[in-house]
Amino acid sequence: MKLVEYIIGQLINGLNAGSIYALIALGYSMVYGIAKMINFAHGDIIMVGSYALYVFIVLMKMPVIVAILLTIGFCAILGITIERIAYKPLRKAPPLAVLITAIGVSFFLQNASLLIFKANPIPFGTIIKVDAVNIGNISISGLTIVTLVVTFICMAILTLFINKTKAGSAMRAVSEDKGAAQLMGINVNRTISLTFAIGSALAAIAGILFLSQYPSLKPTMGALPGIKAFVAAVLGGIGNVPGAMLGGMLLGIIENTAKAYISTEVSDAIVFGVLILVLLLKPSGLLGKKRIEKV
């Protein structure tokens, strides 16, 4: 009995970490789907969101809920702005130019926060104060419950949006064929902006959850979760929304299992090992479809 409880506990821990990866991975995947680019600055949105939350709550003394909403809004606008300034002029440029630009944006964001907030980590008390829940002998922390519930809600809303609304269909149409989408009257620029806004808003939410678990701010804090979420997106099949969700969750579980049973030091290596293995067996990722070739 003890063993089963232990395994369930570890699974929940894995889903907890995986939720954050999944929320970030969604942004990578959606942006890739529509703009056919890897937005390497995406992880840094988590960092910007965290600092924004800190500014709103600690420096400006705003109520938590207001601060959270402002943080999400701020990141959404930042995402749109980055696309407009840095990526839009490069729509027809070779992929390598876009990739380097994205890395440049990432450095820019990190250095900007270094300039403003300095390199010393800033401690930040958790804003999520929910009691732990005991189910049998398993105790789930309040933070974990909030993380899982928030992630579930975000995914449900996003799935409904993409599959059931006009704007969501337009987004899928644009990701498939921008020219044909324009012939339908879809404003491609606006659709791309919307995608960056949604991806960045989800990254902001992930950032808030991440900050609650690792309550310390530093300019490079977005890099590692960012790169792992990217792995998750590729694992699930980049460009594929359910794939990003699955990839994120799987990555969290694998990483957590590796940490629990093997060693914390090599858990990252194992994560990347799994990625390589999956890509060898299925290059398009777990849920990635091979593109239907047009005749």
């Binding site: 006009k166 269909s169 899928r172 498939e176 064929d177 044909a180 012939l183 339908m184 009257g185 879809i186």
Partner: peptide
């Protein structure tokens, strides 16, 4: 357009609705 360029991942109905976007 040439080559039809329907949205292959959308359903038939969704394609038609895109026409009325």
């Amino acid at each position: 357009p040439e080559g039809r360029r329907i949205f292959s991942q959308l359903t038939v109905l969704e394609n038609l609705k895109m026409g009325a976007y």
